[in-house]
């Protein structure tokens, strides 16, 4: 009986959490029209998610392209079709690697920072202070970040694709001798507008998903069971990163299966 009961309460707990999360996100999005001076806040969020994360995106993108070029070359070389290297690199980047890896990197850098910042603001009653001032704390803290993510995630993904293609050409053409013209023309030929649409759809979805998950975890750091203060903030940050990463991969599968 106890097992059944605890399974039931666990499930209820999770379902309630999901509903609460959906409400939180909805409320934050609805606050777009109710929050004043959103522009400056959005700019700061673009700075945090965008400019600050540029190095990691560019570095990871380059290396991803380099590895794809190498691996792709050795696989294709067996069949004598190195000419298709551009197809392999560009399609893997555009359809999967860029949106997923860029989102994971942004979770690691911007998402964790967001969760920790909101967690500390919760901890030091700054969020309660906003509430008592009659300021919509979701609107002030979360909405600008969600809006920024709508632009930042696709932009970072596109940058990832660009440097990834360049990385692929480095290892494929410069190192292994695939003709650059062949490489770039097969890149050009392979990528369709549907691929780009899939890529951007994924980027936007991952952006909204991860930013709202990280914000939700940080915002509710005081609800972490069995921990208070700094511990609660660290637990909230860990949860934010883990749940966001899982959500990115799960959502990737769902979107891919719907679009293929």
């Amino acid at each position: 009986m106890d097992v059944v009961g605890s399974v039931g309460s666990f499930t209820l707990d999770k379902v309630r959490g999901l509903g609460d999360f959906a409400l939180f996100t909805g409320r934050s999005l609805a606050a777009v029209f109710a929050t004043k001076r959103l522009g400056a806040r959005v700019a700061r969020a673009v700075y945090e998610q965008g400019f600050r994360c540029l190095p990691v995106i560019l570095i990871v993108g380059t290396f991803t392209g380099l590895v794809l070029g190498l691996q792709g070359y050795y696989v294709l070389n067996r069949f004598g079709s190195e000419a298709l290297l551009g197809v392999l690199v560009s399609l893997s980047l555009v359809r999967e690697m860029a949106p997923v890896l860029a989102a994971l990197m942004l979770v690691g850098q911007a998402g964790s920072a967001l969760a920790a910042e909101l967690g500390i603001q919760r901890n030091t009653e700054q969020i309660a202070a906003l509430d008592t001032m009659g300021i919509n704390s979701c609107g002030y803290l979360v909405t600008p970040r969600l809006l920024a993510a709508l632009f930042v995630f696709p932009a970072q993904t596109a940058l990832f694709v660009a440097v990834g293609l360049w990385g692929g050409s480095l290892s494929g053409s410069l190192l292994l001798g695939v003709d650059p013209g062949v490489y770039w023309s097969s890149v050009q030929r392979a990528v369709e507008s549907e691929d780009v649409r899939e890529c951007l759809l994924k980027a936007v979805t991952f952006g909204l998903l991860t930013v709202s998950i990280c914000a939700y975890q940080g915002f509710h750091a005081h609800r972490i069971r069995g921990a208070t203060g700094a511990r609660a903030v660290s637990a909230a940050t860990t949860k934010a990163v883990v749940i966001s990463s899982i959500a990115v991969l799960a959502a990737d599968y769902v979107i891919t299966s719907f679009l293929i």
Binding site: T124, E125, Q126, A129, D131, T132, M133, G134
Partner: peptide, 20 residues
């Protein structure tokens, strides 16, 4: 109702709750 009440009140927190 909450909003109009809160706009006419202020709250000073024990830890000040300043935006750091």
């Amino acid at each position: 109702s909450r909003g109009s009440f809160l706009r006419r009140c202020s709250f000073l927190f024990q830890g000040n709750a300043l935006f750091d």
